[in-house]
Computed example of a mutant assay.
Amino acid sequence: MLEKVGEFMGKLAKLVTAGAMVLFIMLSGCETGQENTERSAMISSNEPTLQAAGNEIVPARSIVVGFSQLGSESDWRRANTRSIQEAAKETGIQLILENAEQSQEKQFEAIRAFVKQKVDVIAIAPVVEKGWEPILREVKQVGIPVIITDRLVEVSDPSLYVSYIGSDFYEEGRMAGKYVMDKLLHAEGPIGIVELKGTEGSTPSLSRGKGFHDVIKQNPNLQVVESEYANFTVEQGNKVMRELLERRSKEIRVLFAHNDDMALGAIEAIEAYGLKPGKDIVIVSVDGTRKAFERMVAGNINSVVECNPLLGPYLMQAVKEMLDGRTLPKRIVTPERIFTEVTAHNELNNRMY
């Protein structure tokens, strides 16, 4: 390839007078990703583009993105991570990924490591909303732009990050609430609802809960009798639902789970208790994973609100546009829908996660 570049430059040199033109030629290639097992970092990279500087071909530095992922607590999160890795590889962006394992402190450590490595952009999927202002000010001082993904951060200065890419969690909660309102419109009250919330202090848990409650309060027959945190996991969904059934089994007619994994765990608990999920207890969840759709087809879940984890293409496109000098919207919201047991069968094969 370099011989072809030399021949091409020789031909151009014959067409112009010496010193009349500065020539830049860009070529690109690919190399495989590398894995840093000591720090659980997963790296996707492409070979740097070649640039012509005078008569010498030198490698140009590729874009480097440091991404702090909050964990791997669910099928949704694992799909989110894969999407970001694959999009980085496809776009030729070098990705340094750190899994914080649900620890904000580990996220701070990863971000400071990214600063030392002088990455071009830092992307963060924050564990919780609060506590980010000091670390984001550190990053701003060194001039590295920050993009927030999936979950929001609560800061007094919005200039501490460039853009947020993710879902409208409040609207997801509203969609779940509307489904319950319509499903039980003519049912006799009171109708007891239990709510399985995710990580305490996280954006999805706060906003989905608010959206749901804002809708169902329009019908006084709908009453949330218990609302408990289950950390977005199957195991905690099962455990907390068992406890709720022991206390409230005669009252519970609806379960609203803030994600599919908690709903799947709760279904196991409901079945073990001798009740029929989807019939004895109406179940509404959020995410839209294949496992949840399979449960909808089986009649165990009544409705699932989609929460799109495939944010990789959006993130990498935003990185490239930002570094090209374009202005990004402060909020980039991904399109999402609600599915029911009636439509689940047709959509099942389209699930990518």
Rank of each mutant, 00 (worst) to 15 (best):
S44W: 01
M181Q: 11
S205E: 15
F108Y: 14
H186I: 04
I338T: 02
I193E: 04
R337Y: 09
I338G: 08
E226N: 05
A318M: 08
R174H: 08
I252G: 07
I270T: 04
S44Y: 03
V58L: 10
D287M: 07
N55Q: 10
F212Q: 00
A344T: 10
F256C: 00
P309R: 14
Q34P: 03
Y314Q: 09
V282S: 01
E129N: 09
N231P: 04
E294C: 05
R174E: 11
E271A: 01
K279T: 05
V254M: 00
K291S: 01
E101K: 05
G10E: 12
F339Q: 12
V65W: 12
T37P: 03
R174F: 02
G312W: 12
V162W: 04
F293V: 02
A60C: 09
S159T: 15
I281L: 06
V240D: 05
P309S: 09
F108I: 14
K118P: 06
S202Y: 00
E73N: 12
R78Y: 05
L23S: 10
L185G: 02
N219P: 04
K279E: 01
Y164P: 14
G209D: 07
K250E: 14
K106F: 12
A298W: 01
L310W: 02
L185C: 04
P335R: 06
M352N: 15
S249Q: 12
R326E: 13
Q107H: 04
L50V: 13
G177V: 05
Q94W: 06
V22I: 12
A87R: 08
K14C: 03
S72R: 09
G211F: 02
N300L: 14
M175T: 03
I338M: 07
A13S: 11
V128W: 08
G166R: 00
P204N: 08
S156K: 15
S156D: 14
L136C: 10
R247M: 15
R174G: 04
F114L: 13
K118E: 13
E109A: 02
E226R: 07
T91L: 10
D120A: 06
K89V: 00
M322F: 12
T81L: 02
M352V: 08
E306Q: 13
I281G: 00
E268I: 06
F24M: 10
L323T: 00
G312R: 08
G274E: 07
R137D: 13
D280C: 13
S103W: 08
L222D: 02
A113Y: 03
A176D: 02
I93W: 03
M1V: 15
E73M: 10
L97T: 12
K118T: 09
V5W: 06
E105Y: 07
F256R: 05
P48A: 05
R351H: 03
K250Y: 07
R61Q: 11
E35W: 11
I84P: 05
D120Q: 01
G278P: 10
N308M: 07
G6W: 12
M322D: 09
R242W: 00
N259M: 06
R248E: 11
S40D: 12
N221H: 07
S163Q: 04
K239Y: 09
A13E: 12
M42P: 04
V162N: 01
M316Q: 13
R82E: 11
R112G: 12
R61L: 08
A110D: 09
T81I: 08
I216T: 11
